[in-house]
Design a protein around this nucleic acid. Structure first.
Lengths: 121, 121
DNA sequence: TCAACGATTCAACGTATATTGAAGTGTTGA
DNA sequence: TCAACACTTCAATATACGTTGAATCGTTGA
C-alpha cells in the first residue's frame, strides 16, 4: 500500500452513493450483486450508477465479473484492511507505548499481519 | 459511527495534501505538531495548509489546541479505527464463515470492540 | 504600547466531480 | 435473425473543490 493506491480509495468512498454501494456489497459478501440489483436497492439510475461503479472498480474497491448480460460486483474487503494498516503503520514513530496519552490508539489495537489483496493486471 | 460522520472523513483523506498531513501527525503521536512545522515538513504554503487543516479538523480527524500564538494539531487515531469497524461491521450479513471464498476478509480479521472516540462539543 | 509574528479568513480563479439523457455495445431468447 | 434487455459510454451542464495573494485576527516581546 502506498499513497498512489490509497488516494483513489479515499476519493471513491468520499461520495455518498459510492459509500452506500461499497457497504451494501460488504454486507452481501462473496455473493455480491449485479448492477441492476444495486441500482434497485439504492434507487440510483443506471447511468449514474455505472459512473460510480467504474470509479470504485478502478480504485480496486470492487471486482467485476461478467455473467451473461449481467455484471456482478463484489467488495474487495482486504484492500480496506490494508488501507487502515497503511494509515497506522508508523503510529507514534514505532513507539506505540507513547499512545498511552491518547484515548485508545495503536498501542492496544495492533492489527495482525496483512495478506496481500488481489490485484487486477 | 454513521454515514454523516464517515463521509467527511473520506472526503478529507481524498486529498493528497490532507493524507500527508494526517499520516505525518499519526507518526508524531501525542506530541503532534504546530501548523508551521507541518507546513515546513510538507512544503505547503500557510494559506493552503490552513484550508486543509480546517477540513481535517471539521471531519474530526485532527484536534487543535492553542499554544500562545501557535496552533498544535494532533491525529485522532481512534476515529480511524471506528471507521474501519463501520465499514466491516455487517460483513457478509453477520455470517463471516461465508468469507471463506474471499482471499482473507472479516472471517479471520475480526476487530476487537471499539471504544468511543472523543467528540468535540 | 505597538511592531513582528503565526495563523486564519476572504475573494477570485481554474479545474475536477456529479448528474442526466441520448446513443452505443454486447447478450439473450423467441 | 432480430427485438428486448442489461449495462456502459458519450456529451453537456451545474456544482464543488483546490490553490493563491491580499487582508485580517490574536499573541508575543521589546
Amino acid at each position: 500500500m502506498d499513497k498512489s493506491r490509497a488516494l483513489p480509495v479515499f476519493e471513491s468512498l468520499s461520495s455518498g452513493v459510492r459509500l452506500d454501494v461499497y457497504r451494501l456489497l460488504v454486507k452481501r459478501g462473496p455473493e455480491g450483486l449485479v448492477a441492476g440489483e444495486i441500482g434497485a436497492a439504492l434507487d440510483v439510475p443506471p447511468t449514474n450508477l455505472s459512473f460510480h461503479l467504474k470509479a470504485l472498480t478502478q480504485a480496486q474497491l470492487l471486482t467485476v465479473e461478467q455473467e451473461g448480460r449481467y455484471q456482478r460486483y463484489r467488495a474487495n474487503i482486504p484492500l480496506m484492511l490494508d488501507l487502515i494498516a497503511y494509515l497506522t503503520e508508523e503510529c507514534c514513530s514505532g513507539h506505540p507505548e507513547q499512545c498511552a496519552g491518547l484515548p485508545t490508539a495503536c498501542s492496544d489495537r495492533v492489527l495482525p499481519p496483512i495478506s496481500p489483496s488481489p490485484v487486477k493486471p
